[in-house]
């Protein structure tokens, strides 16, 4: 009986431990985080969703509100933004980080490192580059901003390549997919992808190069693209892509072979029914050239962002390490690309 009372007391203590917690109504559940940087420091915009009563008693009208702040560091800017409201910012549901023009480049690694180490947030939140500025978030109404938020989420979902926070945290190079956002019109669509080596944007990849990067990383299983062919612009869907890596230990080279099926080949006249395999071969040649280009721009520049070298290192790590030591490893000719497509 004595121990039963002790157990009851201990259970009460354990259960009472949550009484000091923050109620949900006292929290601002941050949906999207925007960061930018200029000479004065960092600007942070926290976008959170709340609901207000509408004239229709059966509905709550959602709206997106913003908290803005600035500071010398990311932490200061976030703290300044939060101090503008009695609500406590909650980052647990934050899955989108937007980097303004000033935050792209060298600054983004620092920002991502801070956010990745903060246990409040998600280290795998998607990171996108945008050209909007911090003040662009202000004029819109809560409802318009909410509509923009939904557009942003849709655009992020449609983006071929997703960059994760932890990949950029403390890195030296990285790919930054961009979104074309118009805060006034309330629109957001996927844009191009920027390659940053250090703090400098060294390449801008179009949809085809972005799709190849996503295929190499296994982020997508099918992709719809447009190619310029002898018959004019042709749209197609690449299905069941299969990427094989064959290492040649004699020459320490890697043969990368991308195969797949082309469906829904369409030009200005509609679905194409004749000469499909010739078109497929022409598209394959273009994809081969694009693959070689992205290899030159990443692996060839000493940054194996797509981790292609793993397939050779795993076969002969010592030889690859020796090549790296002598400065011969990052040779774009080390990876040979072949693309074989079959038209359906």
């Amino acid at each position: 009986m004595k121990y039963a009372k002790l157990l009851l007391i201990s259970l009460f203590l354990l259960l009472a431990a949550g009484c000091a917690g923050e109620p949900l109504s006292g929290r601002a559940v941050v949906n999207t985080l925007y960061l930018d940087r200029d000479e004065s420091g960092w600007q942070a915009v926290l976008v959170y969703v709340t609901s207000s009563a509408s004239a229709d008693a059966g509905q709550a009208k959602p709206e997106a509100l913003v908290l803005s702040g600035q500071g010398a560091t990311v932490a200061d800017a976030l703290q300044d933004a939060q101090s503008a409201s009695p609500l406590t910012a909650f980052y647990g549901q934050n899955e989108l980080l937007l980097l303004g023009p000033g935050a792209q480049g060298q600054a983004m690694y620092e920002a991502c490192a801070y956010l990745a180490n903060d246990s409040a947030g998600r280290p795998n939140m998607a990171v996108f580059g945008v050209q909007t500025l911090a003040e662009d978030w202000q004029p819109a109404s809560g409802e318009d901003r909410y509509a923009l938020l939904r557009q942003l989420e849709q655009a992020a979902g449609e983006s071929l390549y997703t960059q994760r926070l932890y990949r950029l945290a403390g890195a030296e190079a990285g790919l930054l997919p961009c979104l074309e956002v118009d805060c006034r019109q309330g629109t957001a669509v996927p844009g191009d992808t920027r390659l940053f080596l250090g703090g400098e944007c060294t390449a801008v990849w179009d949809r085809e190069a972005t799709a190849l990067a996503a295929l190499i990383e296994g982020q997508v299983r099918s992709v719809s693209l447009e190619a310029s062919t002898g018959r004019g612009p042709v749209r197609y869907t690449l299905e069941l892509p299969l990427l094989g890596w064959e290492a040649s230990l004699d020459t320490l080279t890697l043969n990368a072979c991308l195969s797949g099926y082309l469906k829904n080949l369409t030009d200005s006249g509609g679905l194409i029914h004749t000469g499909k395999q010739e078109l497929a071969d022409e598209i394959a040649a273009q994809l081969e050239e694009t693959a070689r280009r992205i290899t030159r721009e990443t692996f060839g520049q000493g940054q194996d962002l797509l981790r292609m070298g793993f397939w050779l290192r795993s076969r002969d790590a010592a030889a690859c390490a020796e090549l790296e030591r002598t400065g011969q490893w990052y040779d774009p000719g080390r990876i040979d690309w072949k693309v074989r497509l079959r038209a359906l």
Binding site: R164, E217, G218, R307, M308, F310, R313, A317, A318, E322
Partner: peptide
């Protein structure tokens, strides 16, 4: 969905 074999680090020595 976020597992990648190619993320494993191969150490030469």
């Amino acid at each position: 969905g976020q597992l990648r074999v190619s993320s494993l680090q191969v150490v030469a020595s």
